[in-house]
Computed example of a mutant assay.
Amino acid sequence: MIKKFLTLLVVLVTYQFCIAQISLPPSGDNQKSIVTQYIGSIAHVTVTYHSVDVTSPQGKSRKGKIWGKLVPWGMMPNNFGTAKEIPWRAGSNENTTIEFSHDMTVQGQPIKAGKYGFHIIPKENGPWTLIFSNNASSWGSFFYDQKEDALRVETTPVESAYHEWLDYEFTERLPASATLALKWENLSIPMKIELPNEKQLYVATLKDELRSSLGFSWTNVVAAANYCLQNDIDLEQGLKWADNAIKFGATNFTTLSTKAQLLSKLGKTSEADKLMDQALNHPSATAFQIHAYARSLIAAGKKDKAFEVFKFNFEKNNKAWPTHFGMARGYSALGQFDKAIEHAKLSLQQAPDQANKDYVAGLIKKLKKKE
């Protein structure tokens, strides 16, 4: 008897093991989909879901019968699982999940890095409720428990172009944010996701990366310093990186000018001016680098200083391209349009290719209008 029981047990375990290993088509032909969107180059959001279509598995159209019918308004009765009422699983079959690689915000509310089960409470009138549950492994919403909610936010659906298949799309992508939208039939349910500490995250990542072999390249180190400079973030750290780049033996216009501009932003004007003069007069300084620095001064509202640098570049590089163009920029910033046009016309003759010729020609037209 015991032998028969053990034999039966082995058969049952073997059967269950085999069933767990085989691959079968998804229920209702609702294909599994995964979409990932990076916010910047470090943080990312991943949505995993099963995509259901408007047409039923039997081939019958359900147009006009999705919202409020197939997907009921409000919480729906549950005859299976542990919850009496459940939200919509925001997809089909398994749990729809949304994973955040870093701490972010959804609709302005903070959410920790991690994977969450995603559910929605649709409403016939008013905003819909989006639910992020700490339970990301259950099947659909059948075992939903409000006590496991990590975050609830609200959003208002908007009309959308027709979508036969339920899809998640990132409809807006910016350096520190993205808009994720569930689209199905004629509705879009959007949510704004933001990376609130984007710049600090980059600095922290750069610190880690520069502790590896990447930190032995002065170009990497000065690039990190320049990131701090351009984004007004952790300027003291940027200054340390600029110093390190120079200590590596890379004394050139790039390293010197980066350090000088960091010193300037830190209020160390005298030291900054002295170092920038050294950078401008360094043998490695090219006409294009000096021109770019002068352009940055115009952008910063330092028109007189910018003109000085444009003029210095013009004289140092013997009127070579793009120094006439720089003089045109400098004079136009000071409102001296006649002199600006004079240099712009000479610049047009020097322009090395058609794209630059077209650009200079466009500038001349603007200068004639005193724009």
Rank of each mutant, 00 (worst) to 15 (best):
K3T: 13
K3G: 06
L6V: 15
L12P: 08
V13H: 10
I22S: 15
P25K: 13
D29F: 15
N30M: 08
V35C: 05
I42H: 11
A43W: 04
S51A: 14
V52K: 04
D53R: 15
S56I: 09
S56A: 09
W67V: 03
G68D: 01
K69M: 05
W73K: 10
W73M: 04
G81I: 13
G81V: 08
P87R: 01
T96F: 03
S101W: 06
M104D: 06
M104C: 08
F118W: 13
F118Y: 08
H119C: 12
I120D: 01
I121L: 07
K123I: 10
K123Q: 15
N125V: 15
T129M: 11
I131W: 00
A136C: 14
S141M: 12
Q146P: 09
E148W: 09
L151F: 07
E154F: 05
T155R: 05
T155D: 07
E159D: 15
S160G: 13
S160N: 14
Y162L: 13
H163W: 05
H163F: 08
L166W: 02
A176L: 04
A176N: 13
S177E: 04
L180E: 01
A181E: 05
A181S: 10
K183T: 04
K183G: 03
L187P: 00
L187D: 00
S188D: 00
S188G: 06
P196W: 01
Y202F: 14
V203N: 03
T205M: 06
L206K: 06
K207H: 11
D208F: 11
L214D: 01
L214H: 09
W218F: 15
T219Y: 10
A224T: 13
A224I: 06
N226P: 14
N226L: 11
I233T: 12
L235H: 02
D243T: 07
K247T: 15
A250S: 13
S257P: 10
T258F: 04
K265M: 01
D277T: 14
Q278A: 13
T286F: 11
A287H: 09
S296Y: 04
K302I: 00
K305R: 14
E308Q: 14
K311F: 08
N313Y: 01
E315M: 07
K316C: 12
G330D: 00
Y331R: 00
A340R: 01
A340L: 07
E342F: 09
A344P: 02
Q350V: 10
D353L: 13
I364A: 06
